[in-house]
Nucleic acid binder design. Structure first.
Lengths: 338, 338
DNA sequence: ACGTTTGGCCCAATCGTTTGGGCTATGATG
DNA sequence: CATCATAGCCCAAACGATTGGGCCAAACGT
């Protein structure tokens, strides 16, 4: 506390105590090993005490300049207003804080130019590493970033063999299919999300695989692509439900899209959970609390974020950790008649 | 592009061109005024060309060390998984990018210790200024931060006379009351959110004021406090609807709380829009797309974020801009029978 | 023809830390 | 008693950019 004018630096502490700045530096920050050799315990105590009293905080600019490490991690997400990404970021931040790192988050809006510009900016800021939450199925840009030598991991979506932490979306898709098939549905439709996101692609893939195993065909016109948000979900459901006969169940690869589907169903006078089964994905906090609780598949977003950061830290330390897939869990609720 | 080993610095450019580093610095960055006096246009061109070719990016650590500016803004929010804050942040980020600034966002979870720790960290990182999205009605901490000399603005919630950009929540509350009164409701209830947030307090205040003007009393047991999320909204609505007689309309100060109320109403067999009117606040993208579209009051979150950043920039420039209140707009939908 | 301006640069200090080497007593060792 | 290790410090050179002053020559004014 109690500064006001002059910032407190190693210099000021050193002078105050009649020591050399390097001595103070080693005491305050050096690894215990060096610290021990650097000064007597008595001196070290005096230094630490004064530093605490003065509220000394090393200048990250100076440190960064010298060490070439900023302790900053860049996080790129399509947009933070997507709840899933916001929760992942909370996990990232939690883990980062524990490691003394901070994050700079940027919204790329899933737009290549924005993404490139923001990535450039993050690298120009000398972030130590990046976490991409907006990987695309075919993603040359990532290879480019890798070639430039910037360490990064992917989260939520995977791409090629770049290190990533994701939910096992393929399995999640299978679980979803399993659930609907178990309820007796034989004519199911999918709101598939954007084709460039592995999340959607895998969920659909797993779903279709399971359906195929059960001998239930899902023709192409039962699959509607589009965005991950409510409006897109509503539009997609409108298309699907316009068919005659209409499907008896809809699997949306995202809770918000599922909510849109609920709206579309209602507009058609369908009773969801009876005439039509609807399920989502991610098990957002909202899903359980909706007027009509939504069956959904939980992907542990928070945990994904934490692990992504942990993985990045390992990479920064020179390791080459393998990608991770988290286990999804299905929770059945009223929207599928449970 | 095309580096690989040695980072490109002013030095490397200067040496390559047989110039002095200071000359290169002035050309590349100095204000046009100095730039002109710094070198001939021919030299300036050569420098700029080479810099571009080599992909020179000034080292922010070095710059920051020298200039004592990091071009980083710290943003503190209760949590980014609150859609309202996420959207505000998008606005902040947009405006920040345009000014060459970046943001470090942290979640304070509305917890004082977390908040203090994260603020310390942001200051230790030498952020140029802070934006608080988690101001409290009685907030000594802000005074403390101000006393330490850290420039900041508040966004979304105001407190004391600290500079802030908020929605005119009082007016918003009045609009809400106006709407319900206009529909003939004379027994209304409020899901009021947390008492430490000015958003909730003001919305309730304006609402009550308008009701009083209309001669419609709203007794204390018609006001339920709690969180801003769906679960809290459901719990609050459960309490309110348990009364006999039950209110005919509920004003929730937040869309998510309103969604919870929708659930509670449904569980009681009430037809929202007919037996019971429910309205929210913020006009989240979700509100219009819900199975039962929600009447809500729009607070331009994006704009709020942009303005908050603009205001902070002015403060950093030494000005003392006045606080701003943005105009809310009510949109009537099916949940109030429209 | 001889100041004086000024265009075009270069010098060097500085910001705060980190870190590979000293340097000097003191105590232990042979 | 000479030698050596060691504890406990100090020195100084970075890191990369910024910035108030020079300094020199060419152009200009009278």
């Amino acid at each position: 506390m109690a500064d006001g004018a002059r910032p407190v630096t190693l210099q000021s502490i050193a002078k105050e105590l009649g020591l050399h700045v390097s001595t103070v530096s080693r005491i305050l920050n050096g690894p215990a090993a060096t610290g021990a050799r650097a000064a007597s315990t008595a001196t070290a105590d005096r230094v630490r005490r004064l530093a605490a009293e003065l509220g000394y905080r090393p200048d990250p600019h100076a440190t960064g300049l010298r060490t070439r490490r900023s302790n900053l991690i860049g996080v790129l997400v399509p947009r933070m207003s997507d709840l899933v990404l916001a929760m992942i970021h909370e996990g990232i931040e939690e883990a980062a804080t524990a490691k003394g790192l901070s994050t700079i988050v940027v919204n790329t809006l899933d737009r290549p130019e924005t993404r490139r510009a923001r990535t450039d900016m993050l690298i120009a800021r000398r972030t130590d590493g990046l976490i991409f939450g907006d990987a695309r199925v075919e993603d040359d840009f990532l290879a480019e970033v890798a070639a430039r030598g910037t360490p990064f991991v992917l989260v939520n979506r995977h791409s090629a063999d770049h290190p990533s932490v994701t939910c096992d979306d393929w399995l999640g898709g299978r679980l979803a299919a399993d659930h609907l098939l178990g309820l007796g549905h034989r004519d199911v439709a999918i709101i598939a999300g954007e084709p460039h996101a592995s999340t959607g692609v895998d969920r659909v893939g797993g779903f279709l695989e399971r359906c195929a195993e059960a001998g239930v065909p899902v023709p192409g016109d039962r699959i509607a692509h589009g965005g991950f948000d409510t409006a897109a979900g509503r539009a997609a459901a409108d298309r699907l439900l316009a068919a005659d006969p209409a499907p008896t169940a809809i699997f949306a690869v995202n809770d918000f899209a599922a909510i849109g589907a609920l709206g579309a169903a209602r507009d058609r006078g369908l009773r969801v959970g009876e005439d039509l089964a609807v399920m989502g994905y991610n098990d957002t906090p909202l899903a359980a609390e909706l007027p009509l609780p939504l069956t959904s598949v939980l992907s542990s977003t928070h945990e994904m974020g934490r692990r992504a950061l942990a993985m990045l830290v390992r990479i920064l330390a020179g390791e080459r950790p393998p990608s991770e897939r988290l286990r999804p869990v299905l929770t059945a609720r009223a929207s599928t008649g449970c």
